[in-house]
Design a binder for these strands. Structure first.
Lengths: 146, 146
DNA sequence: ATTACACCACTTTGTTCCACTTTCAACTAA
DNA sequence: TTAGTTGAAAGTGGAACAAAGTGGTGTAAT
């Protein structure tokens, strides 16, 4: 289970250190892809295979489905952690997520998320992200108990 | 599984470099054909056979189905990668997809797509490709979780 | 003879690998 | 409790290598 929040910095070549605790879980080879809310998603090989299987079932003839599959697959890349514990993020993904030097990696259960630090701070300061507001919204989704 | 986004340029002779990571998957001989949304599709020999099988199941009696099959089959050509890792795109397919010098190749699971760079940028800036819209569609496509 | 294409040689760019430094946190001993 | 020691993790820069990009030459078809 991926958890925690870690702050690291991109080096001049666009590489990022994978926090030691996450590395144990996610493995030496994993997949990153465009995510929602302006961050990147990172999946272990196993979680990715799972996701991929679902994508394969979508119809080519439906425009929404094509858009959806394109978004995640063309936005994906396989990453390998080097001997220094780093991995490369391709320039198009850096651009998509506005990554500057300071980056935040968070564990979110089945995936990690990679955020530009400032964007992460901003996201967390929005009023809709307060714990109370989140609890409020959950009721609408039918999640009444934990 | 074909994934990722790669930017390359057509040379003066209409040839295009196949990104090294895609080449491993798609093989030395593959098929390109007219695609949907203004790009070209490219299939490995194996995926092409697969695709053809599916086309065969469509009813010959239905005009839409006949149009659909004609569209893909009449536009198809076989490509071979040369010793420099490049392949030639015929002028009619270049014309169909408005390819200029700058080209984007994307991996979309079972196929690649070849886009004119500007058209790709434009496609990605459309409202329906925003992360919010993608998330919205997830539910409709039966993809409730990642 | 002209055109189109395959092949070859070379330059430039990008990626990977390796060695080194700095930082931080845990542990030990005064 | 504090200062010093040690080791792991994080961060940095350069060298070596592979991939991408380009231009020229030869050959075969028209």
């Amino acid at each position: 289970m991926l958890i925690g929040e870690y702050e690291h910095s991109l080096d001049a070549k666009g590489r990022l250190i994978m926090p030691a605790k996450i590395r144990e879980d996610i493995g030496d080879k994993f997949i990153i892809t465009k995510g929602l809310d302006g961050c990147l998603f990172g999946f272990s090989q196993k979680e990715w295979d799972n996701f991929q299987e679902k994508l394969k079932t979508l119809p080519l003839t439906n425009k929404n489905a094509r858009d959806f599959v394109r978004f995640f697959l063309s936005g994906a890349m396989e990453c390998e952690i080097d001997k220094q514990g780093r991995f490369l993020i391709s320039s198009n993904l850096r651009e998509y997520s506005d990554l500057n030097k300071e980056v935040v990696i968070t564990g979110v259960g089945t995936r990690i998320e990679i955020w530009d630090r400032d964007k992460w701070k901003k996201y967390n300061s929005e009023e809709n992200i307060s714990a109370d507001q989140i609890a409020e919204n959950m009721a609408n989704l039918g999640m009444l108990s934990i």
